[in-house]
């Protein structure tokens, strides 16, 4: 019995120290390990990551077909900053991203973000949507004039026709003009599209509303 215990000690003692050693190493080096793991993962990506629509929108009920031509603002539950309220799709280029209210870093890390100083889809005015170039909006440069952009929200489905595509400076006020009462959509991302790092240029795609319920006060 004593002999068997001694033999067993050869197994569980090294195992115990291995677990403790690895645990200590893991706890101490976790920040670096995470960083290295993420960096390696980033470098080895061969395509932009896909955000599954099911995963990101499981708690959000998106409208699939419009029931009405107009909607009353009073009856809508519009989101607060940081909430996901829709999904942006450009079927022709396979772009499909969750749409958030707000275009801060947190929102752009998860999908595309609507500037909180622009109007909601369906309101009379401009909806301005941003997305990162190497991930969410990587396919934006393939978009052609005439193609469709679909924005499914929690209150309606909006279809926009692409009217223009251009490259503009980030501070070009005319390119990002929010004035006017025509319901339109502006999508933008950093340009060049494959550029690593921060750039002063933006690829801008304009869409005008083709269908979807108009929000009235």
């Amino acid at each position: 019995m004593q002999h068997a215990k001694r033999i067993m000690a050869y197994f569980y003692m090294p195992l115990l120290f291995l677990v403790i050693g690895y645990g200590v190493f893991f706890l101490a080096a976790r920040p670096i390990l995470d960083f290295v793991h993420n960096t390696v993962h980033l470098i080895t990506l061969d395509r932009p990551p896909k955000f599954s629509a099911e995963k990101t929108t499981k708690s959000l009920k998106l409208v699939t077909a419009n029931q009405q031509q107009t909607l009353k603002m009073d009856h809508l539950k519009l989101p607060t900053y940081g909430d996901q309220f829709g999904q942006l799709t450009i079927p022709a280029v396979g772009l499909e991203q969750p749409l958030y209210f707000g275009d801060g870093e947190q929102q752009l890390a998860k999908g595309v973000g609507m500037y909180n100083g622009s109007r909601f889809p369906g309101e009379r005015g401009t909806t301005l949507v941003a997305g990162h170039n190497v991930t969410a909006m990587h396919n934006l440069n393939q978009v052609q004039v005439g193609q469709q952009i679909v924005v499914r929200t929690s209150y309606g489905v909006y279809t926009y026709g692409v009217t223009k595509k251009l490259v503009a400076k980030y501070n070009d006020a005319q390119a990002f003009d929010l004035s006017g009462r025509q319901p339109k959509l502006i999508l933008y991302t950093c340009y060049p599209i494959n550029m690593v790092g921060l750039t002063p240029d933006r690829l801008v795609v304009y869409g005008s509303l083709q269908s979807g319920p108009i929000i009235k006060m």
Binding site: I43, L108, V134, V196, G197
Partner: peptide, 17 residues
């Protein structure tokens, strides 16, 4: 400007790595 920086600053990550 209302336009955000939509490029990813991966360069810093790569240099750090």
């Amino acid at each position: 400007t209302i336009v955000k920086q939509t490029g990813n600053d991966y360069l810093i990550s790569i240099i750090s790595f």
